[in-house]
Amino acid sequence: MNSEDQDANKIGRADFFKGALGCTALAWGSMTLYPIFCYLNPKAGDQEDETQVSSLEVCKVKDLPPGSGRNFRFGSTPAVIIHTKDGEIHAFKAICTHLGCTVQYQQQKDNIYCACHGGQYDAHDGKNIAGPPPKPLTALVVKIDKDKIIVSQS
């Protein structure tokens, strides 16, 4: 390799400083953006209204006649309890598996309905039966203790 080739491969002072400036800008930019990203990115448990519940009494059986349902608060999660027309009591997390709207019991059709996009679920097992929901609802465990309906995490 002659000296001319060697000169051609050398990085000039101006190019070196241009590169260094670019790298410094990138490093400085990342150093600035990282804390902003962390500041904005929420951590688990950040939301002060977050409450964990493993079991709770929803109502008395006599308050929930067959063919009726009601939405209730299960910790930080909306939930629905249903007394089907054939006498069974079931509870589910009331979060539509489609886009997260809150579902409700539909008395005429004895099923669970999401008003946002018309998704429907079976009131007995929470299975998605019509509309866009891709998955069944998450079931909760229902126990009857004397006259009380107790719902707990499955």
């Binding site: 608060r73 809150t102 891709p134």
Partner: peptide, 26 residues
């Protein structure tokens, strides 16, 4: 914690996207 109100729809300028997504199977 209340169910979504029946008949809920987005603003008219998001309606076409809303309806389009509604038509697509799960």
């Amino acid at each position: 914690f209340a169910p979504a109100p029946v008949g809920i729809k987005p603003e008219w300028y998001f309606l076409s996207m809303f309806q389009f997504l509604k038509l697509i199977p799960p």
